[in-house]
Design a protein around this nucleic acid. Structure first.
Length: 267
DNA sequence: AGAATTACCTGAGCGC
DNA sequence: TGCGCTCAGGTAATTC
């Protein structure tokens, strides 16, 4: 379940390892993911150089010179970087083999990943056109969130997970940020005042940046992703004692998503 | 327009 | 051992 920090760490690793490399061969092994992997990739990607790897929300953007490869890892997607071509295993759907070695391999048991191709500016592609501001940039501030929450009666946690409002926040960091900000997840978004919006913006930044700085809640290795559940204050900690007050955490469902909060520390 | 619901997909965990 | 069930959840599509 990669969220923004995991995708950012993946981006850094891929940018470091693949920048300037020439694509030699592309293999689409499972055409049918959430949406089909464009068949043209097998012919249009080879011979191109990867100029840079960027990120928008949870989308990875590979600048291939005259075209952009867009990859979203969904829930369980993982990009393996292997020394060279090796036999594919179960759930290995898509390969990019680079000249002189490295193999980038998309592995995803649940097939929620997306692979797309665009020859225009990625920002204007329909996939990215409606994505809201990056949470780690100055555009995302108290004034923005305050304005975005007016006339929104949905629970603030669900609003945070809406990528049109802010990019890259999923269930884990929505839970964590609300705990850090001391705001109940089921509050109607419009009930937050300006100062609460400011606290929430700060908490979101700290939680995301903190996770990136410590190598994410997951350890992204060459082969797999290792999950560190104890790094979370509330996510996955239902009924455990609150790290702040020692009281029992409460677990509810919002928008059919598991939600954990402290009824004493969050208001 | 905003909100709620469902589909997509498979492995893990659990009760019996 | 194995069956059936629930859950995990990002996003798009659909419906109200």
């Amino acid at each position: 379940m990669p969220e923004l920090p995991e995708v950012e760490l993946t981006r850094r690793r891929l940018d470091r390892e693949l920048k300037g490399r020439r694509i030699e061969q592309v293999v689409i092994r499972t055409p049918k993911l959430r949406s089909p992997i464009p068949a043209e990739l097998e012919s249009c990607l080879p011979e191109r150089l990867v100029c840079v790897v960027e990120r928008r929300g949870k989308y990875l953007l590979f600048d291939c010179g005259g075209g952009w490869l867009i990859i979203h890892l969904g829930m369980t997607g993982f990009l393996r970087l292997l020394p060279g071509m090796t036999a594919p295993g179960k759930h290995d759907h898509f390969d990019i083999l680079f000249a002189h070695g490295p193999l980038l391999r998309l592995h995803d048991p649940r097939k929620f990943s997306t692979v797309a191709w665009t020859t225009g500016a990625p920002a204007t592609n329909p996939i990215l056109a409606g994505v809201g501001p990056e949470p780690l940039t100055p555009v995302f501030d108290a004034a923005y969130l305050f304005a975005a929450t007016r006339s929104r009666r949905v629970a603030v946690k669900q609003l945070l997970m809406n990528k049109a409002i802010v990019a890259g926040i999923g269930n884990i960091y929505a839970n964590e940020a609300l705990f850090r900000a001391g705001i109940r997840p089921d509050r109607p978004a419009s009930s937050l005042n300006h100062s609460e919006c400011g606290r929430l913006v700060t908490a979101i930044r700290e939680v995301l940046q903190g996770s990136i700085d410590q190598g994410s809640a997951y350890r992204v290795t060459e082969e797999t992703v290792v999950y560190h559940p104890l790094n979370f204050a509330v996510y996955g900690q239902g009924k455990a004692p609150c790290i702040c007050c020692g009281g029992e955490l409460e677990e509810i469902r919002l928008g059919n998503r598991s939600t954990v909060y402290c009824p004493r520390c969050q208001h």
